[in-house]
Write a protein that binds this DNA or RNA. Structure first.
Length: 914
DNA sequence: GAGTTTGAAACT
DNA sequence: CAGTTTCAAACTC
């Protein structure tokens, strides 16, 4: 995949040393000279992974981008990954940015990367900080890249040339994006790693020291390029570690050891010392990620997952995935292992994308941005996976190998990345991701290659309990047995709060839905205290089989449990008002069956998911804070009546907020969330609240995940804001309006919003809508294809103002709202919908109750948008889907600089929320 | 940390 | 489809 790309000359090497800024000037000059030479390489696409039209960088988690850039300089391996990403970026950029196409030589890229680094430095808050940051920022980038590299490396020799070529792919534009991202990232990082930073400041030297070691360890190629990076990385790691002492490579050494061990265990890698070295580096990155986590969470220090390593061997496949995902969950990144589908190689530790949407289980963790980015790439490769729900499975099976590339899920990661700050954040993101991911996971494909140890007897899925303890040994054994108790640490939200899931399965072998990890579609990781766990990369096959079996029995088994129901069948009850469905609109698909908990404890899935109980629930004595069984409508009514403002259930909201649900946070990050589907407005008085409300609603949306839909949004999010020129503008304005609306409940505002959304002139999401064809295409592709188009499309798609519009419109346009609700319902409805989706949208529409009919007629606005976009198609679902996605720009987290406005809404959300 | 409670998942 | 069992999380002490 990667390798093919043309090679770029050693220039990188020359640059490699570049770490020193001083050199930059010459380099720049050189580059500047070169830059004009676009012809040097074909468009970025070539570079990237072939199949992938990788999504734009934007999508990729911000981190990735940044990482990638620096990496380019330093490491070829990373470059490969980055290149892919870049290519994606390019695509994404195409819309907005001109420069992209120039495949731009490595030089250019390097140049850019340097610039980014430099910028970072310049950005540095303090002189001291500058130093620290700059490195950190770079390091971060590296980390992400590294991960990628890991994946890449194994397969692909460290050929610098290849890497270079890949690097070339990176569009200069990406740089800008990355910068933004970095900025954001920095902010996050600053919060997260403030301690670390301080350390760094103190121990700049430390970083230096490390570099040499790394170099020694690394293969020559890498060494050259990597030195600076390594040093940086190590420094970062050290910092992360929080211990100044770490300075020297303790981390790296450990990682190497681990790698070696792992290799030995697996026997795969052992053969290649070089690879090991390479891995070590990547691992270092991983560690770094881990450290971060540790910093944040502290738990995870140890966790390096051997599994990943094996995956690494997978090399190429892993490219995208790579460890990056791991980082996703800062805390648990360790813990979190790649999705099942995980590329063999890719150690993807993607957050848990639970199978589909919000599995309660999925609540897990978020993927880090970086990982996310990588994933995107793959997904892009995938092109389209039209799959949803069940389909996805087959794909996995058949395609996994191929599919490995794609994992639509990742886009989500983006969001996550933004969230890095908070664990929750991530977790939430993960949630969303999960939903989306679920598909992705399948998509991803475990790859046969997967390094998997040998699952040997996967067949026996559950039954077989570890046949091979031996094999397990590496990863599993340790982890498996790892103290069983880790889990409980958190209790309450934690799961979410942590962001990462952990299980404590003893008998299910983590191959049943009992296992949260499994249910979420993620591999068990260190944090897990499970015993006899087969939910590990090593047993990928088993996992997949089991999963399939389960799905065969219940296609929706891995579907998100929580769906936004606006609709809710019940709607009849509500609805007429055109009431909005409050956030509460989200509902648990199956409903709960609580008898004693009164739906006031986490025993209740509805409660756990922070959604209200619905008629579908068979609970007794329901007192669900988020909404009782029959209350659904109530909220709606309130909203409708109150108009925007209010939100009746202050208590409700408060609770929600108080809960500090990860969901909210995640949602915040997620553009999806932004989608106002529900009337977040109701709840909101304050932006925060509002945000929260949104989030809730968002969650659902996401979760439903219908995978696709959800995914897309995520995809969007990464885009960060403004990168896409389009979105940015709108987003801000939109946000403002929304805020107003939320705060004041102005009908006018709502209108404005609508108008804004509709404004043809404006770029943004809406714009996408504007273009019917585009829309149609997008809808088709995106909805299912996922990665490919998501870059551009997603935006548009997401942008579809419909939903938001309706929501915002609030009381005024009740009808609209309803429509939205319906649509949203459809969208969210979950897997089933998903299943429905693929094929015919129309059906879906019909399916919906009468309300749905309204969709067509009512509000011109709404209509316009939808109509314009879908235009003829209107057919149900797709149409709906588009509506669902929220404005990408909203995602605060992602949006780095540009998004400030967005972030404003929830500044914390991204970083802090909990 | 151990034990109990709870309800979903799995099984029949 | 309903009832029962199994399971692991959530919760309590």
């Amino acid at each position: 995949m990667d390798s093919p790309k043309s090679c770029k000359p050693t220039t990188t090497n020359t640059f490699a040393p570049e770490t020193v800024p001083a050199q930059e000037s010459p380099v720049f000059s050189y580059i500047s000279n070169l830059s004009p030479i676009q012809p040097v390489k074909p468009p970025p696409v070539t570079q990237g992974f072939p199949g992938l039209n990788s999504p734009p960088l934007v999508f990729t988690s911000p981190r990735l981008n940044p990482h990638s850039q620096p990496n380019f300089h330093k490491r070829a391996q990373l470059q490969g990954l980055s290149a892919a990403k870049l290519s994606g970026q390019d695509e994404g950029c195409k819309n907005n940015i001109p420069a992209v196409n120039a495949s731009e030589n490595l030089d250019v890229q390097l140049h850019t990367s340097q610039i980014t680094c430099n910028k970072k430095e310049s950005y540095g808050r303090n002189s001291v900080d500058d130093q620290t940051e700059s490195p950190t920022g770079c390091s971060d980038q590296f980390l992400t890249d590294i991960v990628d590299m890991d994946s890449v490396d194994p397969n692909v020799p460290s050929d610098s040339t290849v890497k270079k070529s890949e690097i070339i792919d990176l569009p200069p534009d990406a740089v800008t994006v990355t910068r933004e991202i970095e900025d954001v990232h920095k902010e996050d990082a600053s919060t997260e790693f403030s301690s670390v930073e301080t350390d760094l400041k103190k121990g700049d030297t430390v970083s230096v020291n490390h570099s040499p070691k790394l170099e020694s360890e690394l293969p020559v190629d890498h060494a050259l390029t990597n030195q600076s990076q390594d040093s940086i990385i190590e420094t970062v790691e050290a910092e992360w570690a929080g211990s100044r002492d770490l300075s020297s490579c303790s981390g790296s050494t450990q990682t190497e050891k681990e790698n070696e061990d792992y290799v030995e265990a697996t026997g795969q890698l052992s053969t290649e010392p070089v690879q090991k070295k390479v891995r070590s580096n990547p691992e270092a990155f991983q560690l770094r990620g881990v450290r971060r986590r540790c910093l944040q969470f502290e738990n995870a220090m140890q966790s390096n997952q051997p599994a990943e390593n094996p995956s690494d061997s997978g090399g190429p496949k892993s490219l995208s995935v790579g460890t990056p995902s791991t980082p996703i969950c800062p805390k648990q990144a360790d813990t979190i292992q790649p999705l099942y589908p995980r590329n063999t190689n890719s150690t993807i530790k993607i957050p848990k994308p639970s199978g589909i949407g919000l599995h309660l289980n999925s609540i897990v963790n978020a993927v880090q941005a970086g990982s996310g980015a990588v994933v995107h790439v793959k997904s892009a490769q995938m092109g389209n996976f039209s799959i949803r729900g069940k389909k996805s499975i087959p794909i996995i099976n058949s395609h996994l190998s191929d599919a490995s590339k794609s994992s639509s899920v990742f886009p989500l990661a983006e969001n996550v990345s933004a969230s890095t700050d908070d664990n929750r954040h991530e977790s939430h993101a993960s949630m969303a991701v999960n939903s989306a991911n679920s598909l992705s996971t399948f998509m991803v494909k475990p790859s046969n290659d997967s390094v998997v140890l040998n699952p040997v007897e996967y067949q026996s899925t559950p039954g077989n309990k570890r046949k091979h303890n031996d094999t397990e040994t590496i990863g599993s054994s340790g982890e498996l047995k790892s103290s069983p108790k880790k889990k409980r640490k958190k209790t309450s939200d934690s799961g979410d709060g942590d962001g990462c899931k952990r299980c404590n399965c003893k008998k299910s072998q983590c191959l049943k839905l009992y296992c949260d990890c499994f249910a979420a579609g993620i591999y068990c990781a260190e944090p897990c205290a499970c015993q006899g766990c087969y939910n590990r990369p090593e047993y990928e096959d088993t996992v997949i089989e089991t999963r399939q079996q389960i799905e065969s029995r219940n296609p929706l088994a891995f579907a998100p449990k929580v769906v936004q129901n606006n609709v809710e069948p019940l709607a009849s009850s509500y609805g007429e008002d055109g009431t909005h469905f409050t956030p509460s609109s989200a509902r648990h698909k199956r409903g709960c069956n609580c008898k004693k908990s009164m739906c006031l404890k986490k025993y209740c899935e509805c409660y756990q998911a922070k959604v209200g109980c619905s008629d579908g629930c068979r609970c007794e004595g329901c007192k669900n804070v988020y909404g009782r069984k029959g209350e659904h409508g109530m909220v709606k009514d309130v909203l409708s009546k109150e108009g925007t403002n209010e939100r009746t259930d202050s208590s409700f909201i408060e609770q929600m907020v108080a809960s500090g649900n990860s969901l909210y946070q995640t949602e915040l990050c997620n553009p999806h969330n932004l989608t106002p589907l529900t009337p977040a407005v109701q709840f909101l008085n304050h932006r925060k609240d509002a945000s929260a409300a949104w989030f809730q609603s968002g969650e659902y949306f996401q979760s439903p995940g219908s995978n696709l839909s959800s995914v897309a949004p995520y995809m969007m999010s990464p885009r960060s804001p403004r990168d896409s020129i389009n979105n940015g503008m709108i987003s801000e304005k939109f946000l403002d309006l929304v805020d107003r609306e939320l705060c004041y409940g102005n009908a006018e505002t709502a209108d404005e919003l609508v108008s804004v959304c509709h404004q043809p002139g404006k770029p943004g999401n809406l714009s996408g809508i504007r273009n019917p064809q585009e829309w149609a295409n997008n809808s088709k592709d995106q909805s299912f294809s996922g990665s490919k188009q998501y870059s551009s499309t997603s935006y548009h798609w997401h942008g579809s103002p419909n939903t938001p519009m309706a929501q915002f419109s609030g009381t005024k346009d009740l009808k609209v709202v309803e429509l939205d609700g319906d649509l949203s319902n459809i969208m969210h409805d979950d897997t089933p919908d998903i299943l429905k989706d693929c094929p015919t949208p129309v059906n879906a529409v019909k399916v919906s109750s009468p309300n749905k009919k309204r969709i067509s007629p009512p509000h011109s606005r709404h209509h316009d948008i939808s109509s314009s976009s879908s235009h003829g198609v209107r057919t149900g679902r797709k149409f709906i889907l588009k509506a669902v996605p929220s404005f990408p720009p909203l995602t605060p987290c992602i949006a780095s600089k540009d998004a400030p406005a967005q972030q404003k809404n929830d500044p914390q959300n991204c970083t802090q929320n909990k």
